[in-house]
């Protein structure tokens, strides 16, 4: 069973629908006590870094996520769910992130922000998972990007600058794009994560 964490950060339906469409059992988790019912979790999210961290704390998901990741079980972060894994974000100064990945989240300082639309995610790194993937177009919508200070790159993308658009570290995979909104490429990515990670 796959669990999608509901901490009040927007629309979970498309993530739920896409996994269901692929034919895997999936449920929305409203409370950390439900972690025991699932064997992999997805942390989605749109909205601001600071409010999301606040919501993770007040809904008691914050510590449970740290424990889950510590226990080496499969974890997928999407969009803000990638950014929350870092130490801090320029979006919400003074707020401490989950701090699972060394590095921070930076605002695009380019002509057009947000970065909206379909862009190429180029596979990088030499993990077994990255070797199973190929470069493909995915749907992006974000104003901030992650700057890891360790070698965790899974995808990189060019938008005026080149930045890391996906990471992998042990049991953690997280991407800046929305696989649940990226048509066949996105479904394929989700399927690979479920089958290989």
């Amino acid at each position: 069973m796959i669990g999608i964490i509901d901490y009040g950060a927007g629309n979970l339906f498309s993530v739920l629908n896409s996994i269901r469409y692929l034919g895997y059992p999936v449920k929305v988790l409203k409370d950390p006590s439900e972690f025991k019912d699932v064997d992999r979790i997805v942390l989605p999210g749109v909205g601001s870094f600071g409010i999301a961290i606040q919501n993770l704390i007040s809904s008691r998901f914050y510590n449970s996520i740290l424990e889950w990741i510590d226990s080496k079980r499969p974890f997928l972060g999407i969009c803000l769910g990638l950014q929350l894994l870092f130490e801090f974000s320029e979006e919400s100064p003074g707020v401490k992130g989950l701090s699972i990945i060394r590095g921070y989240v930076k605002k695009f300082n380019v002509k057009k922000v947000p970065h909206i639309g379909w862009n190429l995610a180029m596979v990088c790194g030499d993990s077994a998972f990255s070797k199973s993937l190929k470069d493909d177009f995915y749907y992006f919508i974000h104003s901030y990007y992650v700057v890891p200070e360790e070698d965790v790159g899974l995808f990189k993308t060019e938008y005026y600058i080149e930045y890391i658009s996906g990471i992998i570290k042990d049991n953690i995979v997280a991407v800046q794009f929305h696989p649940e909104k990226s048509s066949f490429a996105g479904l394929n990515f989700l399927k690979k994560w479920i089958e290989l990670c």
Binding site: N17, S18, Y21, Y139, S182, S183
Partner: peptide
């Protein structure tokens, strides 16, 4: 539509 088509 959103249950079977996965684009924005």
């Amino acid at each position: 539509v959103s249950q079977v088509v996965f684009i924005p």
